[in-house]
Amino acid sequence: MSRRTAVAAALAALVLASGCLGFLSGPVTFSASQVTVQDSALESAGYEEVAVEEMQVNRTFEAAGQSKTVEITNWVAQYEKQVSVLGVERRAAVFGTFSSPEVSVLGQSFNPLNEYDDREIAELIQQQYGTISDLTAVSNTTMTVLGHSTTVTKFSGTANFDGQSIDVFVHVTKVNDGGDIVAAVGVYPQQLDGEEEHVVTLLQNLQHAS
């Protein structure tokens, strides 16, 4: 899996892996709204948009001899920044957002992203990304994202870029906004001075089309 799609695919796996929705009546389609980074913040932080796209997940649930397929439409936004790593220019700084809708069936609400804390999201990224290991929580910071006070957890880890091991930081947070759960993740080499501030800039300048 390429670094470009790693964050988005990892977060999408949260939806695919969840099996908590065991109801067979009610709506069969649920859609989230886009979450993107403001252009001015991207320019300031030096990131470029890679993709903003829908990601649909279909799940069939069975109970009492009946089955029902539920379609969930999520939105993924991916951004990258080319930086110098070990003397070579690489698109090694990555930022991604993922929005997943609240699913309501029979008066009960469920959102797969809501079942995971920051550590579990980071651990899932580690599994899906395939090149990050030894994730360790470094700090927790409270900031405002999409108008909500939230905790951003910073992890340290080791990534493999083109066969070379590089220490990285991973920032993870999520908020509930407009009926969607929004997760945001930033990954970058630890050697980049000031990159944490750029990630903070991106987090503080998210926009949700709710």
Rank of each mutant, 00 (worst) to 15 (best):
G96C: 08
T131H: 11
I121C: 05
E120G: 05
A51L: 13
Q56L: 13
V103G: 02
P112C: 02
A64W: 14
Y47F: 04
T136F: 03
G46F: 01
E89L: 10
F61E: 12
L86P: 08
S109Q: 09
V76W: 04
E123H: 11
D118H: 09
V83A: 07
T153N: 10
M143C: 04
E89Y: 10
G65E: 07
Q82L: 09
S109M: 08
A122M: 02
Q127R: 14
S109W: 03
G107D: 02
S139K: 07
I72D: 04
A122G: 01
R91M: 11
E120T: 06
L124Y: 12
V52N: 09
G87F: 10
V85S: 05
K68G: 04
V94I: 09
K154I: 05
L113N: 02
V76H: 02
T136Y: 05
Y116N: 04
V85Q: 03
Y47E: 00
S156V: 08
T131K: 15
A93P: 00
A137V: 03
E71K: 08
E71G: 12
G107I: 05
S99N: 01
L124M: 13
I125P: 02
S100I: 01
D117W: 01
A93E: 05
S104T: 15
N140M: 10
V105Q: 15
Q108E: 10
L146I: 00
V145L: 00
T151L: 12
T69I: 09
